[in-house]
């Protein structure tokens, strides 16, 4: 772990430079600890794939004390103190969030391409997508968008050459080994394999985002008639 200042009001704790559940778990645990610590002047704590960015008010925060806190949180995560019981206190959930998806058809216009990439049928490609439990590595891009992984290498089709200007809300996509759900209509280049009736983000809900970094997620198939669209 190393601490990297990003200007006068952000410091980033960086872990190993790779996308890896163990590395990400450290970032998530350190972020949770920093939120608990509620250091004076801290505005935001943002875990990413392999780092934690702490945003603070430089006129109200003791920078050296903040860095020390980050060091201590990182040491505890390295020592494995965040495993087991403690992890459950630091993260929101222990069982996978189950996400219904209507695969293929108009909801998943790229399922055929993903199946062709895998050299298999659309049904088998969808089945491969549901078989794994994914980790939410981080959220970003648009509110509530969770970067999940890693999908089976057979269906890890690259992004589309030409992004769509409008991807409908609820669309489930694949981009290489990543999978995710578009929480709201937006432009996007991921391969669209289906759609979920769930709303991953709603600012009016008590818990606006369905997913948080560190969550686990499993998709399951439904028929179009089973969802409220």
């Amino acid at each position: 772990m190393r601490l990297v200042p990003a200007g006068d009001s952000v410091v980033i704790a960086e872990f190993e430079d790779r996308i890896d559940p163990a590395v990400n778990a450290r970032a998530v645990a350190v972020a949770a600890r920093m939120r608990q610590a509620a250091v004076h002047g801290v505005r935001d704590v943002v875990p990413t794939f392999r780092s934690v960015a702490v945003y603070f008010d430089p006129l109200r925060t003791d920078y050296d004390a903040l860095c020390l806190r980050l060091q201590q949180a990182a040491e505890r995560s390295a020592a494995g103190e965040d495993s087991g019981v403690e992890t459950r206190e630091l993260t929101r959930r222990t069982s996978p969030i189950r996400v219904p998806v209507c695969y293929g058809g108009t909801f998943g216009p790229d399922l055929a391409d993903v199946a062709a990439f895998a050299g298999t049928s659309e049904g088998e490609a969808a089945e491969l997508h549901t078989r794994r439990i994914y980790r939410v590595f981080m959220l970003g891009f648009i509110p509530g968008f969770a970067y999940m992984g890693s999908v089976d290498a057979r269906i890890a089709a690259p992004r589309r050459a030409a992004p769509r200007s409008r991807v409908p809300a609820g669309s489930v996509g694949i981009a290489g080994e990543q999978t995710g759900i578009y929480p709201s209509e937006s432009p996007g280049g991921w391969q669209l394999i289906g759609r979920t009736p769930l709303r991953p983000f709603d600012p009016e809900r008590a818990q606006p985002a369905l997913f948080a970094a560190g969550d686990s997620v499993q998709f399951y198939p439904i028929d179009a008639a089973d969802g409220q669209w």
């Binding site: 200007g7 952000v10 996308i19 990413t48 794939f49 960015a53 981080m138 970067y147």
Partner: peptide
């Protein structure tokens, strides 16, 4: 690997021509 994107950072894409991130920036990049 995508990282946090603080206000006022100068991102450098492959073109080498920087982008200054302002108020409405995405949270990661």
């Amino acid at each position: 690997i995508s990282d946090a994107t603080p206000l006022g950072v100068l991102q450098v894409p492959a073109s080498g021509q920087p982008v200054l991130l302002m108020a409405d920036r995405q949270t990661t990049g």
